[in-house]
Design a protein around this nucleic acid. Structure first.
Lengths: 149, 149
DNA sequence: TGGATTTGGATGCATATGCATCAATATATA
DNA sequence: TATATATTGATGCATATGCATCCAAATCCA
C-alpha cells in the first residue's frame, strides 16, 4: 500500500473496477438500446440540466459535473440540440458563453427512459449485490476513489 | 432491490461505479501517457499473451478474456503488430484462425511499463482505499458484479 | 486607453469504436 | 459426397473521442 508498490489486493481491486464497470455498463447500455433509447451520456446530460437550479448550465458546468473533455461537451450538446432535446442561449453576462437548457422533449425523454434504465440497474447491479448492506459498502468504497486528492 | 425498482443505495452504487472507474482510469492512463507509454488496452493484450500457456492466443480468446468486440480485437491486434509487439501465425488445425504471439519487444514493453503502471495504481487506488481491508472488500463486491448471471 | 493574456467554446484532423457485411474455412445434414 | 449452415476473422462505413488549434469575448496591466 506504499506509494509505488500496491499490494496484490489493491491491484486486484483495480482490475475488477475496470472489468466490472465495463461489463455492467455494456449490459445496461445494451438494454437501453434494445428498448430504442439513446446512449447513457445523453441521459446524464439531460438529468444534470433538469436538476440545474437556474435557466440551464454552461458547458463548463457540464464538463465538471460529468468529467468530460471540453470538446466532447461541445459536440455532445450539438447532437442533443440536433435531436431537439436541448436548446442553446447566449448568456447575458458573458458573450462567450452558451447556456444549455432542456426542452420539453428532453424532459419527456428522461421520463420515458427512467423505467427502462431503473430496471437495467436493478438487473445488473442490485440483483448481484444481493443486499442493501453490500450496496451501501460498495457505494462507500467507490466514494473514496472519487474524492479529490 | 426488486427486479425493476432498485433502492436509492443501489442507484448510488451504480452511479459511483461509473464515475469512479472513469476518473481513476483517466488518471492512470494520463500518468502512463505522460511517461511515454501506449494505452492500457495494449498492456492488457500483451499481458494475456505472456500469461498464455501455449504458443499464443486466438482472437476469440482475447475477446473473451478482455470483453472486447470481435472487430476491435482484430484492429487492436493490427496496431500491436504494426508496432512490432505481437506476431500473427496461421493455426494448423483451423485454417480460419490466427494465433497471436507476443514478441521479445512486446515482453520488453510489459517489463518497462509495469513500474509506472504499478505506481499509478498505488497512487490512484491504493492510497485512497487506505487499508488492505478496504481493498479486499472492494475487490469482493466488484467480483459479484462480474460473476455471470 | 490599448495591447497582452486568459478563458469559453468551436472545429479540422487523426484515431478508435460500433455496426453490418463479407470471404474463407469448418461442420452438419441430406 | 454434395449442399446448407455455422464459425473465424477482416473490412467499409458511420459515429465518437482525443489532440491541437483557432476565434471571440473578457480580464489584466502598463
Amino acid at each position: 500500500m506504499t506509494e509505488n508498490a500496491p499490494s496484490e489486493t489493491v491491484v486486484q481491486a483495480w482490475a475488477r473496477l475496470v472489468k466490472a464497470q465495463h461489463k455492467v455498463l455494456g449490459a445496461v447500455e445494451a438494454d437501453l438500446k434494445r428498448a430504442g433509447f439513446p446512449p447513457l451520456a445523453w441521459y446524464d446530460v439531460l438529468l444534470e440540466l433538469r436538476r440545474a437550479p437556474g435557466q440551464g448550465l454552461r458547458h463548463l458546468e457540464i464538463e465538471a459535473e460529468l468529467l468530460l473533455a471540453q470538446h466532447n461537451v461541445s459536440r455532445l450538446v450539438d447532437r442533443l440540440e440536433k435531436a431537439g432535446l436541448v436548446g442553446r442561449r447566449p448568456v447575458a453576462e458573458d458573450g462567450r458563453g452558451q447556456l444549455v437548457t432542456i426542452t420539453p422533449s428532453g424532459r419527456d425523454l428522461l421520463r420515458r427512459m427512467w423505467p427502462a434504465y431503473r430496471a437495467a440497474i436493478a438487473r445488473h447491479v442490485g440483483r448481484k449485490l444481493e443486499s442493501e448492506a453490500n450496496a451501501r459498502s460498495l457505494a462507500d468504497l467507490l466514494g473514496r476513489l472519487i474524492d479529490a486528492g
